[in-house]
Structures are given as C-alpha cells and as structure tokens.
Nucleic acid binder design. Structure first.
Lengths: 147, 147
DNA sequence: CCCTAAATGGTAGCGGCTCTCATCTGGCGA
DNA sequence: TCGCCAGATGAGAGCCGCTACCATTTAGGG
C-alpha cells in the first residue's frame, strides 16, 4: 500500500460514485462518521452523533445508507446479542480486521485481533461448500469492571 | 458416552429441580423440544412447533423459559444477523459444540465444527482480561443453492 | 387434601427497524 | 449556465420481536 493510499472514506464514496450512485449529504455524512470511528456504532448512535454535530440526518436515511454499504461490502454488520445491530467499516486488507468482546453484564463492546484465529477461520472456509463472504467472532463474558 | 449418561433434557430438568425451580408444563415442553432439535430454533418456531404438536405454550412462557435456561447456561443464544434470536442446547463437554454458517440470501442456517478453530479461540480467551463465558463464530456467505 | 409461592399465558406496550410517499437535489445534457 | 429528472432524502406510519404486567393456574411440600 503506497503512501497515496486513499482513506476508507474516499475509497467508499468514489466506488459508489463509480457505480452510478449519487453523492447526497446523508450518505456522505454517514460514511464520514464511520470513517472517524474506531469501533462499531449502532444506527441510533449515528443518528444522535450527527445531530449533535449539527448535521442531522433522518434515521431512515441512515438505515438506507447502512444497507447499501453493507450490501456492497464497505461496512460490516455485527450483532452482539442485545438485539441491536452495530456497523463498522470493513477493512478488507486485514489491516484493521478484528473481532469483539462483549460484556454480558454492562454491554460494553471492545475489539481484539488474533492472527492464529484468522488462519483457523480461513482454513474452515474452504471446506464449507459456501462461498464465504465474511465472518464474525464474538466472545462473551464479564469485563474487567464487572467480574 | 457411557450407557447411563443422562440426556441433556433430563440433566437440564433435574438441575433446575435441584435449584428449587418447579417443573411446570411449559418449561418441560420447551426443554423437551430443544432436546429433540439438532440445530438452533427461534422462539416463534418453538411456539408454532409446540402448537402443532397439540401442546400449546404461551409465547411469554417460551421467552421466560429461554431466559432462565440461557442464564443458567443450559442453552446458547445465537444471533445470526436477521434481528431474530435463536437458541440451542449448550453441550459443555465440547461434544456437540459447533458454530454456524448463514446464507446471506436465503437465511438458511447450518452448523459446522472445527478443532483448530476452537483451539485458536481458547488461546485468545486467556489474553483478553475478560472472564470469557462463551463464544460464537458466524460465517456469512452464499450457500450451495444460492451462489 | 390444602395451601402458597412459583409458573403460566393473554395482552398491552416498547423499541428497533422498514415502508411509503412527498419533497429535494446532484450532476448531466443542452 | 440553466433546467430537468432519476436518485436521494426525511418524516411518520406500521410491523414485528420481545418484554412487562397481572390475573389465573398449578406443582408439590406439609
């Protein structure tokens, strides 16, 4: 990856543009917000965050944008057990690829990454008969504060 | 498994009995149904199935039973991305331990198991700072029928 | 057999998400 | 640069999974 590697935000917007999608304010706002995020956000969190930033976006638009991004593989949709979906940028190159630790008690979500785990998953994928598009690993338990 | 090993159904009901819980018809029906299942079910599927079998159980009772079983570790709650929770018996001994393949297109859920993957996850667990109670792995993609 | 607390089930309510539709606008053609 | 219009947006109604509530039933010890 050269020095001029485009950011995830730019890459995403440009790719969509290239597929004939227009570049409205709502989509740009959501993509930009996701690009500034280090871990996953819920749709409601995005709604609140954008409103606080003085750039309100309809909740319907947020879901619409997330659906498109998810379908195109730019974001990863994650469900960690509370019945609420979370979303985060999908970094294909493995660069920021990670999984999640969820506290059963307080609901906190943290990230972790592990090479060995990725390798094991990759090995499994080939044997499934599926064309595997992605994977999630969620570890559940009590976090340091709650145990 | 020795000949006298109690089934998951018996073990579950007996354990709850031992903790002072009574043994009502709804709980017995749900545990029995889960015990006959090879993979995960949604609450609604259980409701319909029990009704069809002539043993109707209130949807509220089903959720209550599942919450108790889940809390006590007898069932595993799984979310595979459609916003609906699924439940299946938890086989602690690793015996029937498995994870899930979900078809993005048709929603089909299948099971798979892999030793190497389990080992990798186990290694990660120790480094998290969490007291890890369980884990889920979900592979998403297109199944043989849909690809 | 009785009594009481646990269990049950119908239903209202809540919240996340989706659908619908009227309005707005990015960006291309003229 | 201007006008057009398909794609994009947002408000709100509606849907559905799930939970809360409460009146009724029942398991099972005494």
């Amino acid at each position: 990856m050269a020095a001029a590697a485009p950011s995830w935000v730019d890459l995403t917007l440009q790719s969509l543009r290239g597929e004939g999608f227009r570049n409205g304010g709502a989509r740009r706002a959501v993509v930009d917000l996701l690009g500034r995020q280090e871990c996953c956000l819920t749709a409601q969190e995005m709604f609140d965050r954008l409103r606080d930033e003085g750039n309100p976006v309809g909740i319907a638009s947020i879901y619409r944008v997330l659906e498109l991004l998810s379908e195109k593989g730019f974001v990863q949709r994650i469900e960690v057990g509370s019945g609420v979906a979370r979303y985060e940028p999908a970094h294909h190159a493995g660069e920021h690829h990670h999984h999640h630790l969820v506290c059963d008690r307080c609901g906190k979500v943290e990230a972790f990454a592990d090479e060995e785990l990725e390798a094991a998953i990759h090995n499994v994928e080939g044997r499934t008969g599926y064309r595997v598009a992605g994977h999630d690993v969620v570890l559940r338990g009590a976090c340091g504060d709650c145990r």
